[in-house]
Design a protein around this nucleic acid. Structure first.
Length: 957
RNA sequence: AGGCGCGUAGCUCAGUGGUGGAGCGCUACCUUGACACGGUAGAGGUCAGGGGUUCGAUACCCCUCGCGCCUACCA
């Protein structure tokens, strides 16, 4: 093996980009990398949770991607043909917001640009900035197959969206309905229930008197939103509420508006809240809407707040045009003037906010598209219940169940432009059953006043001389009445299509686009080529594991399961691994507005990707959030450096062994694995055993998605067994005059190093690749090798090695506690209590002498403790270090006394236990035996300590 | 309101029905020929509090307190 000279420390910056580039060039991330072998392999696939194309990498992404990369690399090394498919999400509302902000900077808005041009602008933006997060994932070392990168607005994925929409539409599972929805007046669109974030706010509860029509009295209602009273159409009490029994059925006079509204009953009213009587505003409150619909006949809906968050004409002259909050003040003032405010009290309640812009949501009656999810949800529930899909950790299953059991139809239309446009058309020229043109129910609002017109029905505008194309091109908003019949064109891209019913060519497409999550719900199969029957689909669907955080369990995971079952008739993934949310060190969620975000790229810059990734893995305990602490990253950077230097040591110490020249690491591995164990020295055998156990534990942990356990067992092995013990001991092995033995130690060093690098590679791809490539090898990249798995255990070596460790740590302990300089050479005598122990120590005397810094070592069964010696008591041996003249007698006496106290404490506890009849009778025999053995050992130790202590005391006198 | 989770060394966190663990920090000694991004030794915890189950509880059950999150039609 040629001599390698490594620099003294590891410099990630010099290494990372180089390897990533080489990996890409070689195509090692694609499942086609080695086609011959690959055809035999089982497949394993992961689809990335597509980050928003507007996004930049945050800690959550970093954790998410690190876990997927660990799985991908581990599975590749485990003999799977792996596809990790990357991509991004078009993030309708978010992206549109970003581009609109950009336009505003130029004094433009989307209406001035027009729909087509606006969308072109978004694509331009996407081409320029949308690749940022992809670039950042590469910095993280993500082994995605970039040749298969997808975007939810790609042609293929759009085709899938269209196919799914049409299929559900044809089966009546997609429908239009007029109901209250969550409306964001700033984003100017409907939102699904999930996209609303509820937040506690400190508000006011206003008690308002509504006079009764007969002037006999008034009824007091309590509200948090006084401005909505303008749209009240009833007052409601609980049917059994005695206080109101006499006025139910009467009318109240709605103040400020002077509308007569009935006092009605509904069981949902809570008599104990407020006055027990509630104002009913069907158009602006979900609860009130439900009450209104339960009445027979239903209560009228009066919309007093518009889609811009301002009061409508219906709100009356004094309030129309006011912002809803402005109006709230004005209404309260007006009521006060009339003496109709009974009181106003502080009130904490939760209010819905837009998840994209945090504006307070307005419930608004609009016509929207919905998916009927009842049946799909039931299927999606079953596949988790019957275990076809596992959720890990399974604590999340209950959340999943309760959501799926209470699921409501999914509002999928959004009043924005960026996204998949709903592939549905309307014909204004068709005549409806009532003899009216559909065009009478299609309402256009222009973005600018044109020839005196600002808005109007399609029919009216046509009448006024506008052409079809003009109407469409000038429309800012198109509201299509619920009674207008939608249809699908055979080819939904065929803009020149005609109405299938009347043949009119004046048809128009639905103006809305689909919820972004609609396209993401198809991700596991649309990215693999569906609706085409592709080879990828056959090879990689269903995928193996979905890795995500719980916050999109419903948004995304549940919907993927629904859609997968519906269109593939098969689960989209076998395991769902839910990882933690990364918080700051105080436990707060990281957010830009709080200014507590930690930028992963800065950490990568500072500590290197490997240290950063390892930190995330080490933190990734199941079922718990991560409080990110930067000093952990620093700690693991030191670990990387430690590994680097271990390799450096090995290179420096194998140079003069010409026998191993020209051998590859693979050949050396074979030699180590096939050699009869008895040819190896005890330290070699011991480290091989430790390695075997480490590999075993690491594999089991990865199998169970316990990334932190895998990381820490590898860490402990490398630092505290391989480096602290084995490498130190190997210095003695290597200087051994039996050349053949030394040669085996050299092989073992290389063997353990190689295995260690492979074990660590999924966690730390860069440094392991760099170091592994300093070894002569057959394959080109470390990821082409196998993940260490079944290596032989060696319990015999374990037991023998413990004798050495006992002696060495005994001497070290004496040295440390008595404050004897590490450079001071000492003498030591070992009294052995068993033959096995004596033989083992004698055989391996040199290790002890070197590592414990001794100048003389005697081992025998009949050693007498020298006068004035420090002592260390171990199970099968006693260590004496004569220190007459060197040490302070009192210090050693104190030391022994401390040890004695500790021992006696343990004996006391055990004593209690062993005197307990119940314990002896009921505890398992193995436990009792173990405790008894321990007890005897401790008693023996205690006696020896007492003996030694008295000798010390004699010396002191 | 309901549900879930958490409370373990100064800090950040693992963990387990049978003598309390890691990293960082701290103390002492050491520039030993892989590494001071290092080595050796050490200090430090009634495992939130109370009750129960058990021969035995930090771990399992119940309650209390504190913190966090999710869900809900809290007018």
């Amino acid at each position: 093996m040629p001599v390698k000279e490594l620099p003294k420390g590891y410099n990630p910056a010099e290494v990372e980009d180089k390897w990533y580039e080489l990996w890409l060039q070689a195509g090692i991330f694609t499942p086609e990398f080695s086609p011959d072998e690959d055809s035999q392999k089982p497949t394993y696939s992961i689809v990335i949770p597509p980050p928003n194309v507007t996004g930049s990498l945050h800690m959550g992404h970093a954790l998410n991607a690190t876990i997927q990369d660990i799985l991908s690399r581990w599975k590749r090394m485990g003999g799977f043909r792996v596809l990790w498919l990357p991509g991004t999400d078009h993030a309708g509302i978010a992206t549109q917001n970003v581009v609109e902000r950009q336009l505003a900077g130029e004094g433009l808005d989307r209406y001035k640009l027009g729909r087509k041009e606006f969308i072109e602008r978004v694509w331009l933006w996407k081409e320029e900035y949308g690749g940022r997060i992809i670039h950042q994932l590469k910095k993280l070392g993500a082994s995605c197959d970039w040749t298969r990168e997808r975007f939810t607005m790609d042609e293929g994925l759009s085709k899938a969206v269209g196919e799914v929409f049409v299929s559900l539409f044809d089966r009546g599972l997609i429908y239009r309905a007029l109901r209250l929805i969550n409306w964001c007046p700033r984003c100017y669109t409907a939102l699904s229930d999930l996209e609303v974030e509820h937040e506690e706010v400190h508000g006011k509860l206003t008690y308002i008197r509504y006079p009764l029509e007969d002037k006999s009295s008034y009824i007091v209602v309590a509200t948090t939103r006084p401005e909505t009273m303008l749209g009240d159409t009833a007052v409601c009490v609980h049917p059994q509420d005695g206080r109101y029994i006499n006025i139910v059925g009467k009318n109240a006079i709605l103040p400020l508006v002077n509308r007569l509204i009935p006092v009605i009953t509904d069981k949902t009213v809570d008599p104990s809240f407020g006055t027990g009587s509630v104002k009913v505003t069907p158009s602006h409150d979900f609860n009130d809407e439900a009450i209104a619909k339960r009445q027979d006949p239903p209560l009228p809906f009066i919309t007093v707040i518009g889609d811009d968050g301002k009061m409508t004409q219906e709100a009356g002259r004094s309030f129309a045009g006011l912002d809803r909050y402005e109006c709230r003040k004005k209404v309260v003032e007006a009521l006060k003037e009339r003496g109709l405010i009974e009181k106003i009290v502080d009130h904490k309640h939760s209010v819905g906010h837009c998840y994209r812009c945090k504006t307070v949501i307005e419930p608004l009656a609009t016509t929207q598209w919905y998916v009927n999810v009842a049946e799909m949800a039931a299927n999606a529930l079953n596949v988790v219940k019957d275990g076809r899909i596992r959720i890990i950790p399974d604590g999340w299953k209950n959340s999943y169940y309760s959501w799926m059991e209470n699921i409501r139809d999914w509002c999928i239309s959004r009043q924005i432009w960026w996204g998949h446009r709903i592939p549905v058309w309307y014909c204004p020229d068709c005549v409806m059953e009532n003899g009216v043109l559909q065009g009478e129910y299609i309402y256009h609002i222009f973005f600018a006043k044109t020839r005196g017109y600002y808005e109007g029905t399609y029919a009216a505008l046509k009448e006024a001389g506008f052409t079809h194309d003009e109407i469409l091109s000038k429309s800012k908003t198109i509201k299509v009445g619920i009674n207008v019949v939608p249809f699908i064109l055979n080819n939904s891209n065929n803009v020149n299509g005609v109405c299938p019913k009347c043949g009119s060519s004046h048809i128009m497409q639905d103006p809305d686009v689909l919820d972004t999550w609609f396209s993401s719900s198809l991700w596991p199969f649309s990215t693999l080529g569906w609706p085409e029957n592709t080879k990828d689909l056959k090879d990689f669907y269903p995928t193996g594991t979905l890795v995500t955080a719980f916050d999109i369990l419903f948004f995304w995971v549940a919907r993927m399961i629904m859609m997968g079952m519906e269109f593939m008739k098969e689960i989209p993934f076998k395991d769902v691994y839910i990882h933690a949310i990364v918080r700051d060190a105080k436990g707060d969620k990281m957010s830009k507005s709080k200014g507590n975000v930690v930028d992963p790229l800065i950490l990568i810059d500072k500590y290197g990707t490997d240290a950063f990734r390892f930190t995330l893995a080490a933190f990734a305990a199941q079922g718990r959030d991560i409080r990110f602490a930067e000093d952990r990253v620093e700690g693991y950077r030191h670990f990387v450096n430690k590994l680097w230097n271990a390799t450096r040591f090995i290179h420096m110490n194998i140079a003069d062994f010409a026998e191993l020249d020209l051998k590859t690491i693979e050949e050396i591995n074979t030699e180590v694995e096939t050699i009869e164990k008895t040819h190896l020295n005890i330290t070699d055998r011991w480290i091989l055993d430790r390695l075997a156990e480490t590999a075993e534990v690491a594999n089991n942990a990865l199998e169970d998605y316990r990334f932190n356990d895998a990381a820490s067992v590898i860490y402990q092995f490398i630092w505290h067994e391989f480096c602290d013990w084995y490498i130190e001991l190997s210095k003695t092995s290597l200087s051994c005059n039996k050349k053949e033995l030394a040669l085996w130690t050299k092989r073992c060093l290389l063997y353990v190093l190689d295995n260690t690098l492979r074990l660590l590679h999924p966690f730390m791809p860069f440094v392991t690749e760099e170091l592994w490539n300093t070894l002569p090898h057959k394959n080109k990249f470390i990821m082409e090798t196998n993940y260490p798995k079944v290596l032989g255990r060696d319990h015999y070596a374990q037991r023998k090695m413990n004798y050495l460790i006992d002696v060495i740590s005994g001497v070290r302990n004496i040295r440390g506690e008595l404050n004897i300089s590490p450079t001071k050479k000492l003498c030591s005598l070992i009294k052995t209590l068993t033959r096995e122990c004596e033989n083992c120590l004698t055989e391996n005397k040199d290790y002890i002498i070197n590592i414990a810094k001794l100048e003389k070592l005697d081992i025998a069964a009949d050693v007498d403790k020298p006068k004035g010696a420090a002592v260390s008591i171990k199970p099968e041996l006693e260590v004496f270090v004569p220190l007459a003249g060197i040490f302070n007698v009192k210090d050693e006496a104190d030391r022994i006394e401390k040890e004695l106290n500790k021992t006696e404490e343990l004996i006391k506890n055990l004593d209690k236990k062993l005197l307990n009849e119940d314990f002896l009778g009921r505890a398992p025999k193995a436990v009792v035996d173990k405790e008894k053995a321990k007890y005897e050992e401790l008693i023996e130790k205690q006696q020896k300590l007492i003996e030694n202590l008295s000798k010390m005391k004699e010396l002191q006198e």
